[in-house]
Amino acid sequence: MRVVLAEDHAQLREGLIRLLEAHDFDVVEAVDNGPSLSRALLEHRPDVAVVDVRLPPTFTDEGLRAAIAARREIPGLPVLVLSQYVEQLYARELLADRRGGVGYLLKDRVFNVAQFIEAVRQVAGGGTAMDPEVIAQLLSRRVADQPLAGLTPREREALELMAEGRSNAAIAARMFITEKAVAKHTNSIFSRLGLPPSEDDNRRVLAVLAYLSDR
């Protein structure tokens, strides 16, 4: 799988390259600034891009902007954005085109290598991987909303895992329940949210996130 990596901190960049290559990713180019990232994304059209939000020359949200701009050129270009902090605003901007293939994670999540690699694969496959902290913020904000206020703690847990981009099988394993029970939870969540049930995993997640972030 071909990866473009953007990270301005040399040590972190080397670490990420090592980590990705150890898991059979092919890092076709690693850049350290926004303009190079824009060029690399359009030039290589990678299977997935791993991008730090804050990059030179402005040291603001250069990486995020470059990623969003590239997705305008190449719709659905899978991008996993890494950051020292997460903002719902940015999650929303990334999800705005509703094409999937988007991830937004705290840099800390790299520590759990297996989970991080799973997230990269998920995004490359057109799925979503939202940081649990984004989900937590979204859910805490929506507590006052009627539809979500009615969720049971277990349903809420299932929704969180779902929004992180996990499959029903993974949710079942995490919650120590059967896949059938997960399906029951998700159906109940969807009916509460007024969303028609669908077979497609990623579409479901996107629909939930769109619902959560649009209102």
């Binding site: 804050r54 603001t60 949200d61 902090y85 903002e87 719902q88 605003l89 940015y90 913020q137 904000r141």
Partner: peptide, 27 residues
């Protein structure tokens, strides 16, 4: 860091940072 100078304020300026703040407010 958020308490000293929220990164989103540096990124997006006052209006952007307030948008982010509004999104995180249960109101």
């Amino acid at each position: 860091v958020r308490g000293i100078h929220p990164p989103v304020l540096a990124d997006r300026g006052l209006v952007g940072a307030l948008q982010a703040l509004v999104l995180a407010t249960p109101l």
